[in-house]
Design a protein around this nucleic acid. Sequence first.
RNA 1: GCGGACGUGGCGGAAUCGGUAGACGCUGGGGACUUAAAAUCCUCUGCCAUCGGCGUGCGGGUUCGAGUCCCGCCGUCCGCACCA
Length: 833
Amino acid sequence: MASRFNALKADTHWQQVWDESQTFAARDDSPKPRSYVLEMFPYPSGKIHMGHVRNYTMGDVLARFRRMTGHEVLHPMGWDAFGMPAENAAMEKKVHPGEWTRQNIAAMKAQLKRLGFALDWSRELATCDPSYYGHEQSLFLDFYRAGLVYRKESAVNWDPVDMTVLANEQVIDGRGWRSGALVEKRKLSQWFLRITRFADELLAGLGSLEHWPDKVRLMQENWIGKSQGLQFRFALSDGESVEVFTTRPDTIFGASFVAVAADHPIAQALASRDPAAAAFIERCKQGGTTAAELETQEKLGYDTGLTAAHPLGAGELPVYIANFVLMEYGTGAVFGVPAHDQRDFEFASKYALPIRRVVADGERSDAAFDGTEAYTGPGHLVNSHFLDGLAVEEAKRIVIERAEREGWGQGSTVYRLRDWGVSRQRYWGTPIPIIHCSACGEVPVPREQLPVALPEDVSFDVPGNPLERHPSWKHVHCPQCGGAALRDTDTLDTFADSSWYFIRFASQPEDRPFDRAQAERWLPVGQYIGGVEHAILHLLYARFWTRALRHVGLIDLAEPFTGLFTQGMVTHETYKAADGRWLAPEEIGGGVELATGAPVMVGRVEKMSKSKKNTVDPAPIVDQYGADAVRWFMLSDSPPERDLEWSENGIEGAWRFVQRLWRLFDALGEGEAGKGADAALDRKLHQTIAGVAADVEALSFNKAVAKLYELVNAIEKAAPSASRDAAVRTLVQLVAPMVPHIAEEAWALLGGQGLVADAPWPKVEAALLVEDEVIVAIQVNGKLRDTLTLPKGLAREDVEAAALANDKVARLLEGRAPRKVIVVPDRLVNVVA
RNA sequence: GCGGACGUGGCGGAAUCGGUAGACGCUGGGGACUUAAAAUCCUCUGCCAUCGGCGUGCGGGUUCGAGUCCCGCCGUCCGCACCA
């Protein structure tokens, strides 16, 4: 009697078996080839969402597949456990951030286990654990001693109500995202990691990452933003000088003004004695920074009255304070060439400054520029004395050479990338292990005093940093002189925590961050999988941290992740009531809102988010359909890099497939053995073995799923035979990486040895991949007219003869001889009439 | 504005080297089984149509042959953004 597959029972049973036998623990001393498969570890927010399920399912299929193909697989999981939500929870719910975090970890761990992921839980780590962040402090101090860490005054977004620094992303329309208070720019002493020292390496390293998406490499390249040009000085009429940077030194004779940023020292100095200048600077700061505002904002300037002497003797240029010059980029000052830079053009037009052509655009070479916009294309130099006639690139080189020879400037490379500010005025993070002594200055905490642990007895009743106002924690003796000193009360940006966790997974000794030899055996991560939202920050910081570790001699590794895959989001329909309120799927039924009976508008399919109320909680779905159906749905249909729309029909379909599999497995267990061979099914089976393997390796799970459907369709249609029985047995192994619970159940039922999780991937018989007959397309003038089934490898003449003998071809030729016949062996014949 | 990706049935998508477009799944139609329903099974499902024709965003081109290559448009999405 056929039974239904009881997913709930099977899930629980096999998850327990895997757990007890430590099936997925990676062995450090294994002689097998190694494979490190990693998904970005989650923030323990409370419960897992569909995005996690999709992410971890993909990694899991690859990890399980690699085990079956003979690899020793490291597939660990941990928790990115520091961060603001824990402190927000502490303020709102009066619960300690640590307690809140640990409860969330426990809940989410249970949910991940419920999905049957092949994870090595023995290596689990949480970044909020002193046994993790203590080692991070020691790495920070290694970097400090190597000169990769420094402290400087820097402007930050300060929320005066919450009394904390906000990241740029947390400032919305000039206000704090939580408090709604107007954000102030404040100067604070902050710690910085010298990522810019590695800018060139990080840029060059992108070239070696062939298994990264081009998109991510390009985003990092743009973020690093390398520009080469000339940095040089203008002597000013007050006896001082101003340094400018340009990527277009070739246009130096087209300069008609110099402009400095509002917070440039020259502007600040002027403001202190000129109230109008001060007012102008104030006005510059008020400008919005959104795309639309920048687009429409007028170029404004304030004439300082100073003039700058052109270094090549081409007169005196007026010096302006301008709202479009950024202090953060280059030197905070530019020289304006209106004919060949659009901003300079707009500025010069407004203030009636000369616009002189120095690069000919095609036929135009006169100095009087009458265009309506700047010309930035290629050309040769004109109206430029000794540069006349030279191509742009040549002219750049010659001007730089001359500046260097004459000593007024030098060739220079400027990056958009800034050093990484890591100080956060918050409690729930890694304490910065530095002590401030009035006599000795900055003193690193001695290694034997690490970890600098967070105090547990803190309160969140009032805004601000609890570490700052804790009665005793910050008061210490200076490790050098023994005098009274203060701990740094800032904590590290949580991106520091996620910059090396993948190394700690590979090796976790108690007394140091990691064992070099062991870490080098596992790393780099061969396949890293996560969301594209981390394309820049996390992935750039982790690359930097790895290079910094190499710089201080802790590991011989340049790139942490050789393979990267960015998966798409999980989306869902949105629903709105007539008054614009978002409605959750469970609030509607039959096209109306259940509570009011009012009609519902179906909105766009969007990323699942709480604000749009279109989330679907995985937990009840897993309980209803079982882990395998959920996993199967996550892999079906949509290519993994694209968005996947959650749908009720989709999960139903996946569940039906699991039941179909079970009917095949169960019938084989019950029925009589089939006899005889089925050559066509044998061929299909072996094509599927090879095809699914290739698709999984390429992370093309949707294609692997389609091939498995085809095989199942073929098996179901096939008459009983020994081949059919063998195909069903092999199918168990083929689906095992994707739907492991039903696969274990079937493996046990059909008398398999041990666990299917430990079974090898089926062997492909190469001879069976080759078809002995082929279907050849018959075209006339490129249009398909018929197909012929012919023996594979038939000679060209015979194929051509068969095509010309075809009656449809004969009819279309109407007795004429073909002008030409194209034969593609085993594929097609095209008769050109 | 700069940079990038993408555009294939009612929907998600497949077509790996320029060689039979639409595999596979979903939705929908018809039928079988059932007292009935669910489940399951069979079958059809790009468009127009009688032969046949038309079809991969639009317009050109290369080719015996173009979803795939080239040129020019249109649209959607993503990243960055006054970067000198």
